[in-house]
Each structure stands twice: as structure tokens, then as C-alpha cells.
Amino acid sequence: MKIVYTGEKDSRQYKSVIPQVIDKVMQADDKVVWLDADLMGCSGTKGSYGKSDRYINCGIAESNMAGIAAGLAASGLKPYAHSFGPFVSRRCFDQVFLSAGYANNPITMVGTDPGITAAFNGGTHMPFEDVALYRCIPGAIICDCTDVPMLESFLTQAKDLPGVKYIRVGRKDSRQVYEDGTQFTVGKGNVVRDGKDAVIVASGIMVHEALQAAKKLAEEGIDVAVIDPFTIKPLDEELIRTYAEKTGKVVSAENHNRIGGLTSAVEHALIGMPVKFGYVAVEDEFGEVGPQDYLRTRYDLTDEHIVNVIKGM
């Protein structure tokens, strides 16, 4: 795995990548179908609608869509279903939990605009709890997407993975961390940067913040590692424990409520270890509207905050 991170924005927007990948996946596998809930314009799949009957618009009915996805899976197909993060998690949770999870109908749910990236859509559209919900579905596989190569790799393999899969991903900007074509493995974390004084376990947009924090700390002679878990569930606990032992200080960083997401998962992985633990996450609060930059400071999801947490340990 090669790290190509520069901190610059990727010229490719996620919503232009999603339809390309799904088209490819469909070509390779005629069982694949894409469901959307009147948000094809947002997943970038609108251009494919009407051209192929494997792109299905369910209208604004996310619980129905999740149930239909489960039914399609029962009939032998491999469904992906998209809406904004809150609507493919909270809004249809019981259908995902029972019709798909419990009944063992494999589906892949794609939730766009995670956490503060929901920006101008405001608090009603800003999921800080989607990972928590999916984490308590037995066997679920959860990815907080870091960059375009990760999105490609996750979407490409999701169709053949068992159970419920969930990816939360932006629609627009990202910062490339991994080389194009990188293959990610479920349950296997990536050491994005090595270090010996502390380790930051970061996912999604917080990987960039973590790398910026590590850079700032390096200028002060503090050598910090950054781990991106790829999947929050299953979590690469072994890798995290290895780095915890090596550095003695662990900080989680996530664009999500500190309850139930990456922070909880990492904390759980460290049970019984004599290490210091801190977190950078949304406190127990609801979302609100505003530019993403404003929300970033409003919820303290910044590189400076990571720096301060590490220094305060």
C-alpha cells in the first residue's frame, strides 16, 4: 500500500466516482442492482437511470427501499441502496436490521454526507450516529470512507461480502491518501504514518486532520502514528493494540458522536491495556446548519484539537 497524501483536494468528486464504479461492477456481475431514494442526482447515478433497469429509483421512501433491497437479495440479486446518511440509517433501521441483517439477506447501504459534510442541509440531515446504529447490527461491515481509492475498493468488493454493509461517504471533496487502485481488506487497518510517541486512529475526513496534526507535532519533535482502520467494524483491534503498546497513547478521531462509533470501538479494543486514551469526536450533541468549515470548529473536529489532546495526555 502506497501513501500519496499531499493534503490537496482531489479533483474527482465522489459523486462522479460512484456511478463509474457501479457501472463497472454491474458489467462484471449481472446480479448487481442500484437502488436510490430520489437522490440519484446526489449519488451521481441519475444519468444511468432509464438506460438500464438495474438502476431503480424507489422515490422518497427509504424504509421501503431497504425492504425492497432485502427482497431483491432474497431473489438472488446483489443490491446497493443509497440515500443521505440519516435516511439509510435512522430512517430505515428496523428494515435493515431485520429484513436484511437478521434474515440474512446481504445488502450494501450507501449513505452520503456523513456528519458535518451535510453542511447546508443542516441538523436534520447530519448523521453523527449512523455508525453507532450499524455497529449494533450483528456481523455488519462498516466503512467511513477516506478517499476515492477506498470508495472504489469498498464498493467493488461489497457485493460479495456477507450480511449488511454500510459505507458513509461525502458527495464532493476528498483528499487522496492512498494510491489509485489500492486494495483494502475488511478488518485490516492501514498505517498511514508511522510514529512512536502516540497513535491517532482516524477515519473518513478525520484522516486528513490527523495527518495535519501529526505534521504539526513532528515540528515539535513529537512523533505520531496515524492508523486508518478502513472498516470500523470489523475493527483491526490487533493493529491498534500493537500501536497502543508501542506508543502508550491512543487518540481516536471521528466525524461522529463519541458514543457508539470509532471512539467506542477503539476504547473497547484497549480494554485491559495500561495506555492513555483520548478522543476527538462530536460530543453528545445534535447537528446544525452551516458551512463545513464553521462546523469543523463548532464541533472541534480540527487538527489543532487533535494536537491539544495529544499534548494534554
Binding site: 440519516p86 435516511f87 430512517r91 436534520t124 440531515h125 452551516g290 464553521y294 463548532r298
Partner: peptide
């Protein structure tokens, strides 16, 4: 705008809005 009571979707913190909606 930051800290506004007028988000894209109606919020009942604003006088005159009787119900928070958006979902």
C-alpha cells in the same frame, strides 16, 4: 449562516415555526 435560526429546513426554535421538519 453560522448559528442561524433559519436553516434550510424549518426549525421550531424560530418564533412562528410550529414544527421542526426536514426529514
Amino acid at each position: 449562516q453560522p448559528a442561524t435560526k433559519l436553516p434550510s429546513h424549518c426549525d421550531r426554535t424560530l418564533p412562528g415555526i410550529d414544527c421542526t421538519t426536514g426529514s
